[in-house]
């Protein structure tokens, strides 16, 4: 699959049009997760689907999908570690997972910066994790490691 040129011109062009929309929509869903429905998990799923679409349309060796395939596992780990680090930062405010950053006006993006950051970490973790799972299964012949698809951190979304 990774060697193919991807799918027909229609799919490729439409993917190119929609990819930006999908990615920015996923990011918006994650970043506004503390105000509106959504959150890091939902946003991460959308972003991962965007990259999966890129892989399906353009093949595994080109485009943003190829970049992501190489880095998904590392990004996954970075996202999880970032979440843990942010959670531990909560100790500075008194308790584990406590909001440590100064809060802004209610109902704006800055109302809870620490939750936004946590959502971003979850976005990274879930997006990269889902994508890593997809690529481990779809590109099975090449990557022969049983991906664990560890799945606990989205829990806090």
């Amino acid at each position: 699959m990774s060697d193919s040129q991807g799918m027909s011109i229609v799919v490729r062009v439409v993917t190119r049009w929609l990819l930006g929309l999908i990615l920015i929509f996923g990011l918006a869903v994650a970043l506004y997760g503390h105000l509106t429905p959504g959150g890091g998990f939902a946003g991460g799923t959308i972003v991962a689907c965007g990259f999966v679409l890129a892989i399906l349309a353009f093949g595994g060796s080109r485009g943003p999908g190829a970049f992501f395939t190489r880095w998904a596992s590392a990004l996954d780990a970075i996202g999880a570690l970032a979440f843990l680090a942010l959670a531990i930062l909560g100790f500075t405010a008194g308790a584990f997972l406590q909001q440590w950053a100064a809060r802004g006006d209610a109902f704006t993006l800055g109302s809870a910066p620490s939750i936004v950051l946590l959502n971003l970490a979850i976005l990274l973790k879930v997006g990269a994790g889902l994508f890593a799972g997809f690529s481990a299964i779809a590109l099975f012949e090449q990557t022969a490691d049983p991906d664990t698809a560890d799945s606990e951190k989205g829990a806090d979304a």
Binding site: A74, A80, L81
Partner: peptide, 20 residues
């Protein structure tokens, strides 16, 4: 107390990070 969970969890993801 949370460290009992955080330490191995962090170690797990750190292992994934350095795996390559």
């Amino acid at each position: 107390i949370p460290l009992f969970v955080l330490i191995p969890l962090g170690a797990a993801f750190a292992c994934l990070l350095v795996k390559r």
